[in-house]
């Protein structure tokens, strides 16, 4: 088991280095070099030389590569070209907004999506199942940004119930200072017992949360349903039924226990979709997290920032999936050492 963990950790590092390598070489091989991005269209020779020196581009390629990777491993992604701040600090400032959003979404997906998938599987080919399947076929065809904008039109434009975008109203931001203990506003405002600010933060997160949940829901119910269907076809489910176990107990105690393991995979996979989707959602709702930041950085040709954030997001995803894989050992007696 420890050997397996060690192997997986090694693989994680190798994969990350691979990811860094790919981004590095792509940025050097394909048209649109960082220099052009950095200084615009009609640079002077001195500007180019200065920029190359700053980015280390005057060095031979393999030197550049070693430097890039070793700095990236240490978490040094350079200075953002747009804000002139170290990229690491920018990431630190924004990551918790993304974590707050994705964590809450994951929670919501587990609470809502998984039961829908399970019910759909238990009552397969019933009207409930058909409805769920039809909705999820339609659901995956919706672009994330349209879902977000539709919600904005309805709940801000038509009903006026919820704010359009952002993480806090400016009045609340100015009048209700609270300590950024965790960086997650919902928790921080509660810790500060500032309920006005809490309500404001909660109102702001509803729409991004709903958007991200809605676009990921079809995926989660679909995977959950398939996993549950597989479990229900297992021989041991038939055995339990053949020995007079009530269906309710078999489905929701026995089969769900078997679902626990694949369920963790669902959560891990979902996180991947969430990280991708959060880029668009944060952009739509002006959510001050990593996703919106990376989009704007790419659009503004801020190479160090963009590469830094994507590497961080990728490592987060890989780490979570590693943890999920390791949890298998806890949940599945077959994998535990006898």
């Amino acid at each position: 088991m420890y050997r397996y963990i060690a192997q997986r950790l090694l693989l994680l590092v190798v994969t990350l280095i691979g990811v860094a390598t790919i981004t590095f070489f792509l940025s050097r091989v394909l048209p649109g070099s960082p220099v052009e991005m950095m200084i615009g269209f009609h640079p002077t020779a001195e500007q180019i030389a200065a920029a190359k020196k700053e980015l280390g581009l005057d060095q031979p390629l393999h030197r550049q590569y070693v430097r890039f990777v070793s700095e990236a491993i240490r978490g040094d992604f350079g200075i953002s070209l747009r804000t002139k701040q170290p990229v690491v600090e920018e990431i630190g400032r924004r990551s918790l907004a993304t974590i707050e959003l994705t964590l809450l979404t994951t929670l919501l997906l587990v609470v809502v999506g998984v039961p829908i998938g399970v019910i759909s599987a238990v009552h397969s080919n019933s009207p409930v199942d058909h409805t769920v399947r039809t909705l999820s076929i339609a659901g995956v065809a919706f672009p994330v940004f349209i879902v977000g904008m539709l919600l904005q039109m309805l709940f801000y434009g038509k009903l006026g119930w919820l704010p359009l975008q952002g993480r806090l109203s400016s009045e609340v931001y100015l009048d209700h200072p609270f300590d950024r203990v965790t960086g997650m506003f919902l928790i921080d405002t509660l810790l500060a017992r500032d309920y006005v600010a809490f309500r404001d933060a909660a109102a702001h997160i509803v729409l991004p949360l709903a958007t991200l949940t809605l676009v990921t829901l079809p995926l989660v119910t679909r995977i959950t349903r398939n996993l549950m269907m597989e479990v229900l076809q297992e021989d041991y489910v038939r055995t339990a039924l053949a020995y007079g176990m009530p269906r309710r107990v078999v489905y929701y105690r026995y089969a769900l226990k078997a679902m626990l393991i694949p369920l963790m995979t669902v959560v891990g996979l979902t996180l991947g979709f969430l990280l991708g989707g959060s880029v668009v959602v944060e952009f739509v709702f002006d959510w001050p997290g990593l996703g919106g930041y990376v989009a704007r950085s790419i659009a503004a040709s801020d190479f160090p920032a963009a590469v830094g954030v994507t590497l961080v997001l990728a490592s987060a995803y890989l780490t979570v999936n590693l943890v999920v894989d390791l949890l298998y050992f806890v949940a599945d007696p077959r994998l535990r050492r006898a």
Binding site: L26, V280, A295, A306, L311, A314, Y317
Partner: peptide
């Protein structure tokens, strides 16, 4: 190993 939409984003980040 990359999450779905993130790899294209990462690559566009680079190029």
């Amino acid at each position: 190993a990359f999450p779905p939409l993130l790899l294209p984003i990462a690559i566009t980040a680079a190029i």
